[in-house]
Every structure is written in C-alpha cells, then in structure tokens.
Design a protein around this nucleic acid. Sequence first.
DNA 1: AATATTTTTTAGTTGGGCCTAAAAAATAAA
DNA 2: TTTATTTTTTAGGCCCAACTAAAAAATATT
Lengths: 220, 220
Amino acid sequence: MSTSFAEENYLKIIYRLSEGHDEDISTNAVAELTQTKAASVTDMLRKLAEKGWVNYQKYQGVRLSPAGEKIALGIVRKHRLWEVFLVEKMGFNWDEVHEIAEQLEHIESDSLIDKLDEFLEFPKTDPHGDPIPTKNGVMPELGYLHLSDIKADKRCVLMGVAKDSAIFLQLLTKMQLSLGATLHVLEVNAFDRSISVSIDNAPAVFISHEVAKNILVKLA
Amino acid sequence: MSTSFAEENYLKIIYRLSEGHDEDISTNAVAELTQTKAASVTDMLRKLAEKGWVNYQKYQGVRLSPAGEKIALGIVRKHRLWEVFLVEKMGFNWDEVHEIAEQLEHIESDSLIDKLDEFLEFPKTDPHGDPIPTKNGVMPELGYLHLSDIKADKRCVLMGVAKDSAIFLQLLTKMQLSLGATLHVLEVNAFDRSISVSIDNAPAVFISHEVAKNILVKLA
DNA sequence: AATATTTTTTAGTTGGGCCTAAAAAATAAA
DNA sequence: TTTATTTTTTAGGCCCAACTAAAAAATATT
Ligand SMILES: [Mn+2]
Ligand SMILES: [Mn+2]
Ligand SMILES: [Mn+2]
Ligand SMILES: [Mn+2]
C-alpha cells in the first residue's frame, strides 16, 4: 500500500514520540509536532488505524503497529542517510541539512537508497550522531548519556545531539562543540545546574543545563 | 510565490510542448502528457494564468509567460542534474533514472542544486544528451540532427536521444548504441526507411526509422 | 460528589487537484 | 452553408488534508 507525504510524516512523528517509553501517544502531542490542530490529528489517526499502521481507539491515544513502525523506520533511515550525503558529499554544515532531508526522505526508490547507502560507505550514524536504522528495519541502540547527567571530574566524548534545530546546532558550533570532541566535566554548579567543561583540553567554559541536556556523550 | 508539484509538472510539460515551434499549446496535448483529463487541464490553466505563469484565454490554447518559463527551466535543470548524479555517482543505467528524477526535481533548495552542480563538475548535458539549463535560466542550443535525416555514406556521432522511455533506451543499449558511438550510415532502405549502419566500425546492422528518428547525432 | 478545566472528538467548511457528464465553441465535412 | 465531429469548457462531485466552532469525554479541583 502506498503512503502519502502527510501519512509518512505522521508515522515518523508518532515513532519519535514513542521512542524509549511504552505509553500511548496523545493527540495533542502529535498535533504539536505536525504543526497542525488536534482535530486534524484525530482525522488522520482514524485513517492510519484503518490502514493498519497504528493502534488507535478514541480518547485512548495512539501507538504504532508493527507495520507502521516498519514504515516509520524506513523514513527515518532515508532522512538520516540523506543527511549524511548532504554533509559528507555536498559540503553542508550539520545545521543546514534537516529541512532538505525532510523533503528527500519522501523520495520513493528502494534501489536508490541501497545505492546511496553504499556510496556513503554504510554509515552507522547521521551528522547529529543519530543511529541509522538498518535496511531490515532495526534501530541500533547506542546507549548514549546526556551530558547533563555526567558527574564532576568525568571525561567523555561528544557522540550526538538530542535536538536538530539550526539555532541549537549553530550555538554548539560557536562553542567548539562538535561530534568527537572530548569533554572534561570539571564542576557542576548547583545554582543553575550549569557545568564547567574543558573542551578538547582547552580552558574551561560554562555550558548551560539547557544545552547540556541536549548533548549526548559516552564516557571516555 | 511557491509552486506545488502539480503546478511544476504542468509548467514543465507546457515547456516541453513549446520547445522549437512558436504556436500555442492545446489543452488536449497537455492532458496527454500530464496523464489527466482535458477538464482537469482547463482548471489548472486557469490557475496558472491567475498566478501569471502562463498566457491563456479559453479556446485559444496556452503558452508560458517569461515567469513560467523561468520556473520550468529551473525544474528541467534540477531533473537533468539529478539524472547525471544518478548515473555518474550512483551507478544507475540511463534507462533507470527518469522516474526517480521526476521525484527529485521537486526538491526545493537553491543551495543544494548549486552544490550538486559543483559536485558533478558542472555537466553540460544529462545522461540522455539533453542540455542542462544554466543557473540563470538559459537552455543551451545544441543543434543536433536526427539520425533519420542523415544521408547515406555520412559518418556521425551519437549525441543524444529524443525519448526517455526505458523500453527505448534498453533497446539502444542492446544494439550497442550509447552516447559517443560513431555511426557510419551505409544505406537508406527506401522500402521501410530503415537504415544500415556500422556502429563503432562493427559490421552493419539495421536500424528502423522509428528508432533512427529518436536518435540525435552530430556529423563527424 | 459536584463542578471546573483540559483534552479529544464531531460537525461542518475550505482549497487543491482530480473526475464524469453535459453544454458550448471551434473546426471539418457534406 | 448547414450539419456533423472534435475540442474545450462548465457544472457538479469526490477524496485528501487541513481548518474552526461546538459537543463530549476525561481529568483535576473544590
Ligand atoms: Mn534531521
Ligand atoms: Mn539528524
Ligand atoms: Mn528524464
Ligand atoms: Mn534526461
């Protein structure tokens, strides 16, 4: 069965909202991410349920069916492979690729994605450190930690970000925070939960809790 | 002003139908290429005229306005650049790329196209020998001849095809006819207008008029 | 337990892009 | 120059994906 752009976007967003926990997703949560109104979401959820891509009963919230999850993972796979392409081959910065990938993720051609994957030498993660689902629909679990949860005196490596927004990524770039940077957490400041961090052994700088929350690391 | 996929497809098709001659395009001609019904075309032509992209008066046919032609050339440029990408970088055959390019041509990002163009080293023609419009909207005139118009005893080089259909391109491949092949027209057979041609100095083969009509060459 | 608030759904519209059937205009044939 | 045929347009509808306003259900507060 074929999928429209709108349907694909809904499935992708429901997937994102479901990641991690196991609860049903609320209509309002979907409405916020799709940038539509709750009434429109209700409409679409009924349609998606009819096609067997979500389990939905009114007032009970929604979750993806196995079929729906497979579609969502396919879209995410395409999105992230295209992002790699845009950064690695086309020379875009990591804060410039999300919007373009939002369009490219809907291009329908299995052989194109296979060839793209090969062309990019089978990347495991995208330019934001997010894992790329495998061809057969498995999302690798990377198990990164949030920088905000790292204790003082620990060293870690910046592996990814939990937010794609250009404004956030540009700030990181300005702060010399890019994938692979080594971070030495010197101090956690109780007052505002900001942290003092030495980036690649440079003199320490402050990182706000809001920023640290959205930085993913692994312990060194 | 932004353009929908449907609008872009109409403009592109009107452009194609206008190439060469100077007459207005009929509603039916557009309907055939868009794979829609004449009534739907009439609807769309009214809308395109309102947006200033075509000149249209009912029962009089349609032609692109300068603004419409600019949009159409942009779409054609993207289509052909993506086709080069698919063949040169992704390893597709020339008969496999048209459908995918039909999707990719609607991706909206000027900087992406600039970077793609550079990545491909500013190609002048696509995998079918068609010229790629310049960034500022000029379609290069290549002035190729139809193989069916070449006189006996002349030598020429295969520069392009006048048809994108996979079935046609596959036949050419099977006949060893690819871009750059040298063709020596030995004989024009009056009975069926087929021609006897030596391809790259191999023993002569027959090429039907139907095929020769759709092969573009320049004299050697 | 009753009432207020928030969330979600239903009802009714809209616009885009398509359709069929019927009417009107243009063109061809008699 | 009538009449027949073809082309194009209009009229009316359908489906998709969104909307607003109002109703209903779920949840929170008093
Ligand atoms: Mn992204
Ligand atoms: Mn990403
Ligand atoms: Mn093509
Ligand atoms: Mn082409």
